[in-house]
């Protein structure tokens, strides 16, 4: 099977509001796919369904051949779906290193007793985790901020640290929610290069929610468009650019047409 994640017929209902309506979505292995759409189209809701924060009212999600629809959020994170947030949600008063170590929580084994006694096994585990954290921080380009509180980092570095934290989960699927929001064009470009490097060097697929069309069109292999909870188009960036329904969703209907 070439898809790492498959979401089948997902619907999410909040009271009378159908936030996501019967959406099929899959992420092929080692690919970058994007989800775009106007504000309120249900993109972040869809993300929240994939990460287990909301349970879909209908449909199921299969990850790596396993149904994860009913798994708890921390389990989904543990088996390899990591995410970042639209508004950065780092642990501000923890150092960059600690932020990553928290993400490694589910992969570390030491229990209460081992931690209190500082057994040699626990010490070894901590040392290895710290080394791995440093490796990921270096990879994400924030290696010099290891012992800095996350909140003290610049905006761009916080974005990168959030991706680094997600990578510390050792994910196969990485969900990025508007990663370049608030970045200037140069910073966005650095970020695009970083995501490309990520795909090239690691066994990971990236799903992107993004408003910056330049970023979306330059980096994605496939683009899906949501509007009012429904999937209205899917295809390569070029196809999407010329799709009349997409243009309509973003710009409205041309004057005089019905």
């Amino acid at each position: 099977m070439s898809n790492i994640l498959e979401a089948n017929d997902i619907s999410v209902q909040f009271g009378g509001l159908l936030a996501v309506n019967n959406v099929n979505f899959n992420i092929p292995k080692k690919s970058i796919v994007s989800l775009i759409g106007p504000n309120g189209a249900g993109k972040t809701t869809f993300f929240n369904v994939l990460t287990g924060l909301y349970k879909p009212s209908a449909g199921n999600i299969v990850y790596d051949g396993r149904d994860i629809t009913d798994l708890a959020p921390h389990k989904i994170a543990e088996i390899g779906i990591a995410r970042t947030f639209q508004n950065i949600r780092l642990f501000g008063l923890m150092t960059a290193q600690e932020n990553l170590l928290v993400a490694m929580h589910s992969h570390l084994k030491s229990g209460i007793t081992a931690t209190i006694l500082r057994t040699s096994k626990q010490r070894k585990e901590e040392r290895e985790a710290e080394e791995r954290a440093q490796e990921i921080l270096d990879f994400a380009g924030v290696g010099k901020w290891t012992y800095e509180f996350a909140r003290n980092l610049s905006y761009g570095d916080q974005r990168r640290l959030e991706v680094a934290r997600a990578l510390a989960l050792n994910p196969k699927v990485l969900l990025l929610d508007e990663p370049t929001a608030g970045m200037n064009p140069q910073e966005s470009q650095i970020f695009i290069d970083f995501v490309r490097k990520l795909i090239a060097e690691r066994d990971v697929s990236v799903m992107l929610i993004e408003h910056d069309m330049k970023v979306v069109m330059s980096v994605s292999q496939r683009v899906t468009v949501l509007d009012q909870g429904e999937k209205i188009a899917e295809g390569s960036p070029d196809e999407i650019k010329s799709n009349p329904r997409v243009i309509e969703a973003y710009l409205g209907k041309p004057k005089g047409s019905k």
């Binding site: 990460t51 924060l53 921390h74 990591a82 929580h105 931690t115 901590e126």
Partner: peptide, 26 residues
């Protein structure tokens, strides 16, 4: 000891941001 270990970090993370902590596998 606990504060510096795996569990202490998870406690702190929960104190900081419960939702983000659960999304990070805690």
């Amino acid at each position: 000891r606990l504060r510096r270990g795996r569990l202490g970090r998870a406690w702190l993370a929960i104190r900081e941001d419960e939702l983000a902590a659960s999304m990070m596998g805690v």
